[in-house]
């Protein structure tokens, strides 16, 4: 694994970690190609295109074609990183994702750019708050939701190293680099406990992890010890970590995604059939009104204070 990152100040756009890693991988492995839908700019793949012009395939504004072409490239021995706005990559091409990629077990890496509500004012057509639910139900495709630049890099490296289909959400929302021990490592299917705690647990992924940590910090000041678990790997999912969290008796889940079918649902599927515990699922209730990404998160209570309040609510404190 690459060099560890200790906490840095400032906010990061995870697309930068994505393209930096992809370029490094591309330099070492000629099989790596990028496929885009008029999305070189929005995927920040200009650098990759300039270095490996023949390995950047722009199919135009044609997402179904893009995903199918990715599957064909995989058939021809390439490792295809198919990169476009998450809403169109998943929604428009859902059947290509299902039949050509997941069911066919093609070696395609679907990179959903600006997932969640990153497109803010461009509205529900451009929000991608259904993607994890859609892809998670297929079972035969890895689904990853990294939280910061370090984890994004690890995910992209893991994607290239494995043979088979994968979907990764790559946010452009500014996120801090999470504090991690120097020997931190990333494994697909493993959750990451970022903070120990026994009164309750906050399970989060993607852009919500930093907010979950902030909430736990606030709760600690009030005498409540909350565990924070980073659930980057949505499929396969770490059942053990979820069941351990359920042992605390209270779980709050937080995701930049619909409350239907995402992290909250995945956790509920597991705890309800094993060790039922009280739960609160935080996310988006449905199509969002007009507003910036930050506004919409506030509007739906995806903030540290509200996460803390949700856990206090479950604990009755």
């Amino acid at each position: 694994m690459s060099s560890p990152v200790t906490q840095k100040s400032g906010l990061f756009d995870c697309r930068d970690a994505y393209v930096k890693t992809l370029e490094a991988l591309g330099a070492a492995d000629e099989r790596i190609v990028a496929v885009v839908n008029d999305s070189v700019g929005s995927s920040k793949l200009g650098g990759f295109r300039d270095r490996f012009p023949e390995r950047l395939i722009n199919v135009g504004i044609a997402e179904q074609n893009m995903v199918g072409v990715g599957a064909g490239l995989a058939n021809g021995g390439k490792v295809a990183f198919v990169s476009g706005a998450s809403c169109f990559l998943t929604g428009r091409s859902l059947e290509q994702v299902k039949a050509d990629v997941a069911y066919s077990q093609a070696n395609v890496k679907l990179c959903g750019i600006s997932s969640g509500v990153a497109y803010g004012e461009l509205g529900p057509t451009h929000h991608s708050i259904e993607d994890v639910a859609w892809l998670r139900t297929m079972g035969d495709i890895t689904v990853l939701v990294p939280a910061d630049p370090w984890e994004t890099e690890q995910c992209i490296r893991a994607a290239a190293a494995m043979d088979g289909p994968l979907f990764i959400r790559i946010s452009r929302m500014g996120v801090p680099a999470l504090p991690r021990p120097a020997d931190a490592s990333f494994t697909i299917g493993k959750a990451e406990v970022l903070r120990e705690g026994g009164d309750g647990a906050i399970l989060a992924n993607g852009t919500m992890v930093c907010r979950a940590l902030e909430a736990a910090e606030a709760l600690a000041a009030q005498g409540i010890s909350a565990r924070v678990v980073n659930m980057c790997s949505m499929s396969p999912i770490d059942e053990e970590a979820i069941l351990a969290a359920a042992q605390t008796g209270a779980i709050v889940t937080v995701e930049e995604h619909s409350v239907r079918g995402g992290l909250g649902s995945a956790v509920a599927e597991i705890v309800s059939q094993n060790t039922p515990c009280r739960m609160k699922i935080l996310g988006f209730a449905g199509f969002q009104p007009t507003g910036s990404a930050e506004f919409l998160m506030e509007h739906s209570g995806l903030t540290a204070p509200n996460i803390a309040a949700a856990l206090r609510g479950l604990l009755g404190r």
Partner: peptide, 13 residues
């Protein structure tokens, strides 16, 4: 246009 809760979203509804 595109202000919080405006009906004038970036794309028409």
């Amino acid at each position: 246009y595109m202000q919080p809760l405006s009906r004038l979203n970036g794309h028409p509804n």
